[in-house]
Structures are given as C-alpha cells and as structure tokens.
C-alpha cells in the first residue's frame, strides 16, 4: 500500500512540475499515434466507405476480413513488422527498425482495419430510404454516395477516434519495432512497462494517469459525437 501511495505522490509531483522527460514521452506518443491515425484514416475510411457503398464480387469476404483484422494481436503485428523491417528482412535496407517510423507503420496496421470495419458498418447501416430519397430528388450515383457519407459523418468520426484510442493504449507492437529507446522511441505505454519492471512506480503511475485521461477524453468525444448524431 505504501508503495502505491508513494508512487502516486511522486507521479503527481512529476505531472505538476512539468517534468521535461515525462512530457517529452507524452508528446512523442501523441505524435506517433496521431501520425498513424491520420495515415490509417486516409487508408481505412475510403476502404470502409467503398466496401459499404459498392456491391462487388468478394465484398462480403473483404468485410469479414476487415472485422477479423480489427482484433489483430499487437504483438503479432509487431513481430511481422519487425521481420519485414529488420536488417535481414525484405525492407531492412530502409533502416527503419527501432525508429518512430517503424512504430507508425505498426500502429497504422493496427488502426486501419478498425477504421475501415467501423466505417463499413456505419455506411451499411444507413437507412435505404435515404438512398431512395436522394435518388428521387435527382441525385446522380456519386451525389447519392456523398449524401450517404454526410449522413454517416458522426459515426465515421467515431470510427477514427476508436482507431486512435486503440493505438494509444497499445504496447506490444511499438515495443518490438521501436525498441523503447529513451528520447527516441520511448512512448507512454512502453515506459510504463519498463518503469514497472524496474520498480519505479512514480513515472509509471503518472503516465497511467495521462493514458486514462486521454481515454476519458476520447470517450467523452465519442459520447458527444454520438449524441449529436442520434436521430
């Protein structure tokens, strides 16, 4: 109990003293996850929307695949990215392993199926009468598609935020491909793992508080967006 208490006090001290190292880790985490979610949005959103709107051969299979990949184990993603980017891997010549870029790649792989699958479900769930209404008002196929996207805008934003939430809390993949190098690839989750193993609970608790705050913020945003989008 004393360990928890002293760790908690140290955490508060680090947070209110704006500890440079601590806030550097927080900033790096947000930059890596933010960059990854932007890339994943550009990949996942169109993929989800197209598979939701268009009927084509293999559409159901693709949707099932996206749903399956939503639950990809981060350590497996980390291992796969590691094997590809390591010195002996097919892309080893790019020297990306143990860099923030490798961490972004791993997080993109984790977030893209989440964003794609959720946006697919969103578009598919739009009431068919919306499509019919747009059609009877004279909309072309592309105008109908745009109308459906606009109708699902709140849920589409939700899918992006859900993707961000998943990767900020992820530890396995970034630890494997980033190597947890201080000041370079050390992010919140990997720091918590490291500091806990060292018995240094102050930093771990401080970062835990920040992660919970980020999670709370994300969920508040999701709730607000859902509330706005409820018919």
């Amino acid at each position: 109990m004393e360990t928890i208490f002293s760790g908690f006090l140290k955490a508060i001290g680090l947070l209110i003293s704006f500890d440079k190292e601590l806030y550097g880790i927080i900033l790096l985490s947000l930059i890596i996850s933010g960059g990854a979610v932007i890339i994943a949005t550009f990949l996942g959103l169109p993929l989800g929307i197209i598979t939701g709107l268009k009927k084509f051969f293999g559409r159901d299979f693709l949707a099932t695949l996206l749903n399956t990949f939503m639950g990809l184990p981060p350590v497996v993603v980390g291992l796969t990215v590691y094997l590809i980017l390591s010195r002996s891997g097919p892309l080893g010549f790019m020297d990306l392993i143990y860099t923030p870029y490798a961490m972004v790649i791993a997080q993109v792989i984790l977030a893209t199926p989440i964003i794609a699958a959720l946006s697919h479900s969103t578009v598919v769930a739009i009431d068919p009468i919306i499509r019919d209404t747009a059609r009877t008002l004279g909309a072309t196929s592309s105008q109908i598609a745009w109308t459906i996207i606009q109708e699902s805008r709140y849920s589409l934003v939700t899918s992006v935020i859900a993707g961000f939430g998943r990767i900020t809390a992820e530890v396995g993949a970034v630890l494997i491909v980033g190597g947890n190098i201080a000041g370079y690839t050390r992010v919140m989750t990997t720091t918590i793992a490291l500091e806990t193993s060292k018995g240094e609970f102050g930093v771990a608790i401080a970062l835990g508080i920040i992660l919970i705050l980020i999670s709370f913020l994300i969920n508040s945003m999701l709730h607000a967006i859902r509330k706005k989008g409820i018919r």
Partner: peptide
C-alpha cells in the same frame, strides 16, 4: 419527385 410514407429527411 417522390414523397415517401415515412418522411425521410437528411440529418
């Protein structure tokens, strides 16, 4: 143009 049984307005 058509008006449906259930008013379908855009959000």
């Amino acid at each position: 143009a058509m008006v449906f049984h259930r008013p379908s307005l855009f959000n």
